[in-house]
Write a protein that binds this DNA or RNA. Structure first.
Lengths: 297, 297
DNA sequence: CGTCAAATCGGAGTAATAGGCAAAAATGTC
DNA sequence: GACATTTTTGCCTATTACTCCGATTTGACG
């Protein structure tokens, strides 16, 4: 059981008994996972599913293009879209990072947004990733959710409701509009989102920016513009990163060899894959796998 | 004492009494050696130190990439950089190759160049190896040097001056500029030379072209370009040849075994070493050593 | 300060190389 | 002559090198 450094951190105390290893721990509640990391993790690219991430102890820092996103016990993360970005995690054996992640199920989201009605007049352009100041309401909701995780019975009977509470708080919060925009097609934003969704489903296929622009009903140049506004990278870059991250999973978790991984994510040229991989992650594919394996052993 | 075939070859007559075996003979003057070879030596890779080489009898032919460099009694060789190249020697028992080699001491060179002042306006790109037509001045200077070698007393009192004369003639000659460029950093040229120097000192270390390019303050592609311009091979090739030649010395002279030699010059994989050696020298390492030992016995 | 030419950079495809493993071959040893 | 050891070869995968080319920068000159 990881240690909780600070006294009086209720959430950390509740989470801590539930995890026993670094990384993501699943819970009895699908869509809810626990984060733990007892060491410093240098800035590295990764990809989160749309989710809410609440930090109980430690802190994280995300880099999306030129934006820096801090999250810590006083700020939770609203991740609306599954964007590739880079993340640095601050944790130590004495005070590991502890947190809880709640996946944003589109169906649930849609239902809730519709039920809540459209209190439109959107304050600002929706951000696909944003750090939001913690509120009392959210704090309470998360704490209740975390407590529920201790009992399998409570999970099955009350789990959905606990999750609902948390999401409700998020919808009320600063970034509620961003989530709303996801559900109610909101002009340009949702057209780009559709394209992103397509990329995520078919990342191994070949795409031309032109095709994508057509799909979004925009000219290539406007498409490029809006795309970059949201993802902070160009379409081609986005796809490349997506592929590389997927390939990394295949390499490190599914024990594919470099050939297979490269092919599986749509690379035609293995050398090209190797180079891109090295540029993005800092070291070439196989070496990376060896290191990772060495860490486990 | 080797025979001097042609009548009236003053230099050959002076040198000939000083040598009594094939190969390099050292003299009382450090940095000055005598060459003798009474048989034909097929084209084989080797590495000279920066030096002046004056042939008194017979001839040699150097191959540096696509360039051919002839040297014979009418042409002396100015070797500015220690480049791996290939060399064929024409000699026979009746008329062995005879020559004299004067090492180019960087300190001496530097001193002389500075003293002579920079008569810049460089005629052409400096060549790291070049054959220069013999001049009367050089002929005289070398002859005087050679005569001095006969007397240990003269060596110790006048040796330095005699060497100085020879180097002075070289500096005045066609390739003087190449030597000057060595001392006075000359933009790209000297940046590449620095890298070469590093390679020669640390040839057993691991290098990537990328690193080297950084050291030379160039992009990889530009680095490639300039490197090849000077050495007539690519960086990786150059390092490989350097290592193989060093390994050859260890094998043939220092009686290392193949393992040791391979490791000592930076090969991680012995099989790879064996392959490369064979490609470069025509036959695998051990066989080569055996042949060489057979020749001596 | 703008213009043109030359040098340089960075990307991408092709080719070559490194290094691992295993087996064959050669060598030295008893 | 059989065995143990060293060396060589073959094959395979992953990585790097090499080279060309378009884009960009640099630098000299007007």
């Amino acid at each position: 059981m990881p240690s909780t450094a600070q006294a009086g951190n209720a959430l950390a105390d509740v989470i801590s008994p539930l995890v026993n290893s670094d990384g993501m721990t699943t819970t009895h509640l699908s869509g809810v996972s626990l984060l733990c990391l007892s060491r410093h993790q240098l800035r590295t690219p990764l990809l989160y599913e749309p989710s809410l991430i609440i930090i109980a102890q430690g802190r994280k820092m995300g880099y999306l293009g030129d934006r820096e996103i801090h999250y810590d016990p006083g700020h939770y993360l609203v991740q609306t879209l599954p964007l590739p970005f880079e993340c640095e995690t601050y944790g130590s054996p004495a005070a590991p990072l502890l947190g809880i992640s709640v996946r944003l199920d589109p169906a649930l989201l849609s239902e809730m947004v519709t039920a809540m009605g459209d209190a439109s007049g959107h304050s600002q352009a929706p951000l696909p990733m944003a750090s939001v100041a913690m509120t009392d309401g959210m704090q309470d909701a998360v704490l209740r959710l975390a407590r529920a995780l201790h009992s399998e019975t409570e999970c099955s009977t009350m789990g959905a409701a606990r999750v609902r509470d948390v999401v409700f708080e998020a919808l009320k919060g600063e970034q509620g509009k961003a989530l709303t925009a996801l559900v109610l097609g909101h002009g340009n934003y949702s057209r780009i989102v559709q394209v992103l969704s397509r990329l995520h489903t078919h990342y191994a296929d070949e795409f031309s920016v032109e095709q994508l622009a057509v799909q979004a009903n925009m000219s290539p140049s406007t498409f490029h513009h809006h795309f970059k506004q949201i993802t902070r990278t160009s379409p081609a870059q986005y796809l490349k990163r997506l592929r590389l991250i997927k390939a990394q999973q295949l390499l490190l978790q599914d024990n594919h060899n470099v050939n297979q991984a490269a092919a599986a994510v749509g690379y035609r040229s293995i050398p090209q894959f190797s180079r891109d991989y090295k540029r993005y992650f800092g070291e070439p594919p196989l070496q990376h796998r060896r290191q990772e394996q060495a860490l486990r052993a």
